[in-house]
Design a protein around this nucleic acid. Sequence first.
DNA 1: TCTATTGTTCTACAACGTTAGAACAATAGA
DNA 2: TCTATTGTTCTAACGTTGTAGAACAATAGA
Lengths: 105, 105
Amino acid sequence: MKKPIHPNINDINLTSVLYALSDPTRLDIVVKLAKNSDLSCGSLALSVPKSTLSHHLKVLRESGIINVRIEGTQHFLSLRNNDLDIRFSGLLSSILDAASYSNLT
Amino acid sequence: MKKPIHPNINDINLTSVLYALSDPTRLDIVVKLAKNSDLSCGSLALSVPKSTLSHHLKVLRESGIINVRIEGTQHFLSLRNNDLDIRFSGLLSSILDAASYSNLT
DNA sequence: TCTATTGTTCTACAACGTTAGAACAATAGA
DNA sequence: TCTATTGTTCTAACGTTGTAGAACAATAGA
């Protein structure tokens, strides 16, 4: 498959990151990756069609939130924790905190 | 004018907040309010038509980010700092930090 | 080589969002 | 009361987004 393109750290845009995380499905993916890094697309266990999932992952990847590593036929996903923290210190963790707090209600 | 409706603290939704802040114009408004609280709509000095500004302010208000207080013919805007911090601790400040950091580039 | 597995890309479409002009509403002040 | 000020609401145009089926691409394993 084609090698996925990831934005450079300095090209990561705040509004793009916020937009990417403003979708419940995508936020759910990010929360799962925060708990369990290096998951394959299928391991996310989401009840959405492949094409829809692929779309959401593309949005997350192109906004600089996740990294996609290809191994065989599988795509392994991980959060760009370090990059995001360098670019926007504390942003991701506060969003993840807020997300886990929201899920408790 | 009609009294504007503000969501209760517990009805403030994370994805709605992130979505509201993912628009450059709205994020700009929030940054200005963070620096200078209690501004009227006109004092924001944005180069957008009144109707467009009104739309953005409605999105910010309904997502629970800003408070609108009417005095005469003017609407005074302020961030719901405390409410947001109670609901999502540290979220707004980390976004504001990221926004000010972005503007330096 | 053939098949199953894993995702992407193409395409279409309905829903939503941003923008903005025009009309309207409410208040302050002359 | 009349007018200026300050915003809202209505309406429409236009672009964007989320969803999802169908076809396609790439690799692993038999």
